[in-house]
């Protein structure tokens, strides 16, 4: 079966975001961008399923600016077979991304779509679930284990309080949690090879999707700053401070 893996180009997770002084957003000029970490896990899982003989082809998709090509090339270097860039300079909301992915899924007919559980920029945690609703497929969100068995997939999910396993009829949507796997690094030869793998460029209009935002960002501000604390000299002083606050056994 074919696996579709949507990936997003985001501010690198090690970079501390800076809110723009005019309150219009986070400053993304001249900062390091990378593949969303949860999406790396999604690509890795697709590759592992291909290595097990479960998947036959992996198609990576990204919705974003021309530079999202780099993110797709990373996916290709890890082991994806081909890529589709749906190019737009607009910020596209999860609902519109899900609609684009639905249109791509209609054409590609994948057996599984594996997405990251959330992007670390907007922290929405919506796209996979929305795609599942639009396709009418089952969803296995926050996956920490994925086992394809015949015409179904067993997904172990990280839930509050522990783990649960659900059985989903294929085709299905899976979103990855951090502990699903450890993504591989692309080797230099594979990075070179990825340059010649196919990458189609499309636009949202090709899929008939209107990307006009439904949610307007009125402003973006710094979170409240915690007032500076103090360093205590020893355990006795800490105990005194805690007791003064009413914390004791």
């Amino acid at each position: 079966m074919k696996i579709l893996v949507p990936v997003k180009r985001v501010l690198d997770y090690n970079v501390k975001p800076r809110v723009k002084a005019d309150g219009t957003g986070v400053d993304l000029a001249n900062v390091k961008m990378s593949m969303n970490p949860f999406d790396e896990i999604a690509v890795e899982e697709a590759i592992r399923l291909k290595e097990k003989g479960v998947a036959t082809e992996i198609v990576a998709v990204s919705v974003g600016p021309a530079k999202a090509q780099e993110t797709l090339r990373t996916a290709l270097a890890m082991g994806a077979d081909r890529a589709i860039l749906v190019q737009t300079d607009d910020a596209v909301e999860p609902l519109a991304v899900a609609k684009i992915l639905k249109a791509i899924a209609d054409g590609e007919q994948p057996g599984l779509v594996i997405l990251g559980k959330q992007a670390i920029d907007d922290d929405n945690n919506q796209t996979g679930q929305m795609l599942a609703a639009l396709t009418g497929w089952a969803q296995g969100t926050f996956a920490s284990a994925v086992n394809v068995e015949g015409d179904s997939v067993n997904v172990t999910r990280e839930v509050d309080g522990g783990l649960e396993t659900v059985k989903l009829k294929l085709p299905a949507i899976v979103t990855t949690d951090l502990r699903l796997n450890e993504p591989r690094y692309a080797s230099l030869p594979n990075i070179m090879k990825a340059k010649s793998k196919p990458l189609d460029t499309k636009t949202p209009a090709d899929y008939g999707v209107d990307t006009a935002p439904r949610v307007k960002t009125v402003k973006v501000s710094e979170p409240p700053v915690r007032s500076a604390g103090i360093k205590v000299a020893d355990v006795d002083e800490l105990v005194a401070k805690l007791k003064a606050m009413g914390v004791h056994s």
Binding site: L95, D123, Q126, G128, Q129, M130, T141, F142, R157, V215
Partner: peptide, 23 residues
């Protein structure tokens, strides 16, 4: 915004054709 809420609400939003506002 628990794992249960996060699992269900976006699926509801897409069925209603609306954007969800998370957390």
């Amino acid at each position: 915004a628990t794992t249960t809420g996060k699992n269900i609400a976006p699926r509801v939003a897409a069925l209603l054709d609306v954007m969800q506002i998370s957390e």
